[in-house]
Design a protein around this nucleic acid. Structure first.
Length: 474
DNA sequence: TGAAATGTTGGGGCG
DNA sequence: ACGCCCCAACATTTC
C-alpha cells in the first residue's frame, strides 16, 4: 500500500489549530500536511501596522505548529506559482485553504483554484473565517441585507456548527520543503519607531486569544452592554485583533457568547451582536464590493469632500486641539487599536467638523490598526460619514465634548493619553506615544497642546451648511 | 451606536 | 390656599 500523498495547507488568515475546518480537512486526507504561508501582493499591500502584526502572528503560529510536530513554510511570490512549485517539490496532490472574502482575494483564489484543478490537483476552500457565509443569508425577497437590525434578526437563531478540536499532532512530510526566514520579510519595516511600543499592547497568538476570551467571560461580559461604551472601563473583549488573523474562530466566540447568555450573563447578547456587526460588514462587502473604496450611496460622490489636507494631518497626529479626538488618535498610534466609541467620535470629527473624505480616515486606520479588517473598516467609516447603506444621517454630528462628558466623565481616558500616568497593566501610554511617533512630527512631551482649529459649534454649523447646499444642488 | 431646539410638566419659592 | 414665576427634568421635534 502506498502512503497517501502530502496535502498543502495554504495558511492565510487562519493562524490557529482549533476550530479550523481547512486544517481538519487537510488532516482527514490521511497524508502529511504541509502548512505554507505565501507572501504575495495581498501581503505587500498591507498597511504598516497590520503587516507588522501579521508578522508577529506568523512567528507565534510557527511555534504553535512546531508544538504539534509540524512547521510553517514561508514562501514569497505569486500564490499560484508558489503552490505549483511546492506541488512539484513535495508531490502534494491536494491544496486546502480557508476562504477569504474581499474582492482581490476572491479573484486570486478563483484563478488559483481553476488552474490547480486543471492540472489535476484536488482543491478545497473551507469556511472558517465567518459564522455565516455572505451568500447564505438572504432577505425574504431573495436579496441581501442593507440594514443591521433585520440582518441580526435573520441570523441570531441560525445554527452555527460546533467547534472543532485542535489536533495534538499534525503528520509531517518525509522531508520539509525549503522555507524563507521570517526575518527576511521585514514585516515591520514601515513601523517607524512604533514596533517596540505597540508590541507591549498587542496580544498575539491562539493561546493568548483563548486566554483573552476566558478573561472576558470571567467578568467583563456581565457589564458589557453598558460598559462597552466607556473607554476607561476595560469591558470590551479586545478580540478583534485576534479575529483579524484568525487566531481564534468567530464561532468559538459565538458559542461562548451563547453559553454565557444561557447562564444569564447580562451583556452576552450585546457581545453576540457585536460579532454579528462583523458578519454584517462581510455580508455587505461581499454583495457590494465597491463599498470598500466608494460611497455606498452614489449620490455622495457629488458631495464636496475635502481630500487629504493639513487639518487631516493634524488629526492623524492627534493635534486637533480636541481632547477626545486627540486622545483617540494617540491611542491608535500607540496601541494599534482604538476603542469603538472613539472610532465614532474621531471619525465624525474628521468627516464632519473637518469635512474630510472618509477615505482619508479609512486609509489612516488601514495604516495603523493592528485589528485592521477591510470590511469592518469600510463599513464603519461609511457609517460615520453617512454614505453607507445603514448609515447615521449626515446631520448626526458627534459633539466630542458632550461625548467626553458622557463616556469619559472623569477624564481618565483623556488624561491617560494626553497627560500621562500608568494604565492597568503598568504601561505609560502618553510617554509611549512620544516614543512611537516619527521624529519628523516634531512632537515631544514638551510640545504644548494645540488650540482648537475650529470651534465645535462652527465646525458643526459649517458641516450642516455644506450638507444643506449639496442637498439643494443635488 | 446624536445634538440642539423646542415643548411639556411639575415642584418649590414667593407675594 | 392660590397664582405666578422659575427652572430642572423629561419628552418631542427637527436638522
Amino acid at each position: 500500500m502506498t502512503k497517501p500523498a502530502p496535502v498543502l495547507w495554504w495558511v492565510r488568515r487562519d493562524l490557529r489549530l482549533a476550530d479550523n475546518p481547512a486544517l481538519t480537512h487537510a488532516i482527514a486526507s490521511g497524508g502529511p500536511v504541509i502548512p505554507v504561508f505565501i507572501h504575495d501582493d495581498t501581503v505587500s499591500g498591507l498597511g504598516a501596522a497590520p503587516k507588522w502584526r501579521l508578522g508577529l502572528g506568523l512567528e507565534v503560529f510557527g511555534k504553535t505548529l512546531e508544538g504539534a510536530g509540524s512547521r510553517l513554510i514561508l514562501r514569497r511570490g505569486d500564490a499560484l506559482e508558489v503552490l505549483q512549485e511546492l506541488i512539484e517539490e513535495t508531490g502534494a496532490t491536494a491544496v486546502v485553504w480557508s476562504r477569504a472574502y474581499d474582492p482581490d482575494a476572491i479573484a486570486r483564489d478563483t484563478d488559483v483554484k481553476s488552474a490547480l484543478k486543471d492540472q489535476g490537483v484536488a482543491v478545497e476552500s473551507c469556511a472558517g473565517h465567518l459564522l455565516f457565509e455572505p451568500w447564505q443569508v438572504e432577505t425574504k425577497a431573495g436579496g441581501y441585507y442593507k440594514v443591521y437590525t433585520p440582518y441580526w434578526r435573520a441570523v441570531r437563531d441560525d445554527p452555527v456548527a460546533a467547534c472543532l478540536p485542535a489536533p495534538k499532532q499534525i503528520a509531517a512530510p518525509q522531508e520539509w520543503p525549503r522555507s524563507d526566514r521570517l526575518s527576511e520579510w521585514q514585516m515591520g519595516a514601515a513601523m517607524n519607531r512604533g514596533a517596540d511600543v505597540v508590541r507591549a499592547y498587542a496580544c498575539v497568538g491562539e493561546a493568548a486569544a483563548l486566554q483573552r476570551l476566558e478573561d472576558f467571560l470571567d467578568g467583563p461580559v456581565e457589564d458589557y452592554k453598558e460598559g462597552r461604551d466607556y473607554p476607561d472601563r476595560h469591558v470590551t473583549s479586545g478580540l478583534s485583533e485576534n479575529l483579524t488573523y484568525g487566531e481564534i474562530a468567530s464561532r468559538r466566540l459565538w458559542h461562548a457568547g451563547r453559553q454565557a447568555l444561557e447562564q444569564g450573563a447580562a451583556g452576552a447578547e450585546h457581545f453576540l451582536k457585536e460579532l454579528v456587526w462583523r458578519e454584517f460588514a462581510y455580508h455587505l462587502a461581499y454583495h457590494t464590493p465597491r463599498m470598500l473604496t466608494r460611497n455606498w450611496r452614489e449620490e455622495w460622490d457629488d458631495f464636496n469632500w475635502r481630500g487629504d489636507n493639513d487639518d487631516a494631518e493634524k488629526w492623524r497626529r492627534g493635534m486637533t486641539g480636541e481632547p477626545m479626538v486627540d486622545a483617540a488618535m494617540r491611542e491608535l498610534y500607540t496601541t494599534g487599536t482604538m476603542h469603538n466609541r472613539l472610532r465614532m467620535i474621531a471619525g465624525s470629527y474628521l468627516t464632519k467638523h473637518l469635512l474630510t473624505d472618509w477615505r482619508v480616515g479609512q486609509a489612516w486606520f488601514e495604516e495603523t490598526l493592528i485589528d485592521w479588517d477591510p470590511a469592518s473598516n469600510a463599513m464603519g467609516w461609511q457609517w460615520v460619514a453617512g454614505s453607507g447603506p445603514d448609515a447615521s444621517p449626515f446631520f448626526r454630528v458627534f459633539n466630542p465634548e458632550t461625548q467626553g462628558e458622557k463616556f469619559d466623565g472623569k477624564q481618565s481616558y483623556r488624561d491617560l493619553y494626553l497627560k500621562g500616568g500608568e494604565d492597568e497593566e503598568g504601561r505609560t501610554p502618553a510617554e509611549d506615544f512620544y516614543k512611537a511617533i516619527p521624529r519628523s512630527w516634531g512632537i515631544t512631551a514638551d510640545t504644548p497642546r494645540p488650540d482648537r482649529m475650529i470651534s465645535l459649534k462652527e465646525g458643526r454649523d459649517r458641516a450642516l451648511a455644506v450638507y444643506k447646499g449639496a442637498k439643494e444642488q443635488g
